[in-house]
Simulated assay, not measured.
Amino acid sequence: MLALATHPERPGRIVAGLASGRVAISQDGGRTWKDRAVGNGEGAVDTVIMAAGQPDMMYAAIRSDGLWKSEDAGRNWSLAMDRPWLDDAERDLRSLASVDLATGMGGIWIYAGTDTGITRVPDCFCRWQDVQPGNAMDALVAGDAPPPEAPLPSGEPVRALVSVHTAPETLYAALPSGVWNSKDAGVVWSRLTSGDASAVAVNPIDPEHIVAALDGGLKQSRDRGITWSALAAS
């Protein structure tokens, strides 16, 4: 098992990405599972998500292949996008987040973390795009100074991405340099805590509560990442 996904509108549903090239889906909180092949079933499913506001729409990133989607809760799958071309090479998708933004064509953007940074595509699946301020073109036409940008550190793998359900422009990312946060849909990022971060999750009921895998252990924050403490096993 390489990845897990849940959705606040389907509290009993869990979707798992498997190294065997399949996804396993539970509708009862993990008690029973059914699995289905994605693509040709040869590439590992590195990450899976359910779409914001559309829990029956699922996306899976297949290693050495691309982004696949299902519109019927995982029963059938089709290719949505090839892998993005970044830094002179095709890049596998290591992490995914479905972000409900008014600027998207249809409102939903798929953000993807790769070995070298972050990219995104609107749900029309026209092309992978850099993350830019929504008003960048307006500033260019008006001759104004471009909006500020502070991207994630260049060249670092983005191992995990999450969008806050109640505030979709708020993103968290796990990188080797720590846990990072953006409040404007990925244009400006700031580091919340340092350490080798491999995963990050936000409580869907309490967005103040963040849990991250850091330096081989689990840490949590109850104040949106301002302070952190070790998460003790119970």
Rank of each mutant, 00 (worst) to 15 (best):
M1S: 12
A5D: 09
H7R: 08
P8Q: 05
E9M: 12
R10L: 10
P11T: 07
A16M: 08
S20Y: 05
S20F: 03
G21M: 09
R22V: 01
R22F: 06
D28A: 04
R31C: 00
K34N: 14
K34Q: 15
D35S: 10
N40W: 13
M50L: 15
A51G: 04
G53T: 01
Q54L: 14
G66F: 05
L67S: 03
L67P: 02
L67A: 05
W68S: 02
A73H: 11
A73R: 14
D82L: 14
W85K: 06
W85T: 04
D87P: 01
D88V: 00
A89D: 13
E90F: 12
R91K: 11
L93E: 07
R94S: 06
L96T: 00
S98D: 13
V99N: 06
G106T: 01
G107S: 05
I108D: 13
I108A: 06
W109K: 07
I110Q: 11
T114E: 11
T114L: 07
T114Y: 04
T116L: 10
T116R: 14
T119H: 11
R120D: 09
F125A: 00
F125K: 05
F125G: 00
C126R: 11
Q129A: 06
Q129R: 08
V131Q: 01
V131C: 02
Q132K: 14
M137Y: 11
D138K: 00
D138L: 02
G143F: 06
G143I: 02
D144Q: 15
D144M: 07
A145T: 14
P146Y: 05
P146V: 02
P148D: 09
E149G: 03
E149A: 10
L152S: 11
G155N: 08
V158M: 11
R159Q: 15
A160V: 01
A160G: 09
A160R: 14
A160C: 14
S163C: 10
S163T: 08
V164A: 00
T166E: 15
T170G: 07
Y172L: 14
L175V: 01
S177R: 06
N181D: 12
S182Q: 09
D184K: 06
A185E: 14
V187K: 13
W189I: 05
W189Q: 06
S190I: 01
T193C: 08
G195Y: 11
A197Y: 03
A197V: 01
D206V: 00
P207Q: 04
P207F: 01
V211Y: 12
A212K: 01
A212I: 00
A212S: 06
A212Q: 05
D215H: 08
G216M: 13
L218G: 07
L218K: 09
K219T: 14
Q220S: 11
S229R: 13
S229Y: 00
A230D: 15
L231E: 09
A232N: 15
A232F: 09
A233P: 03
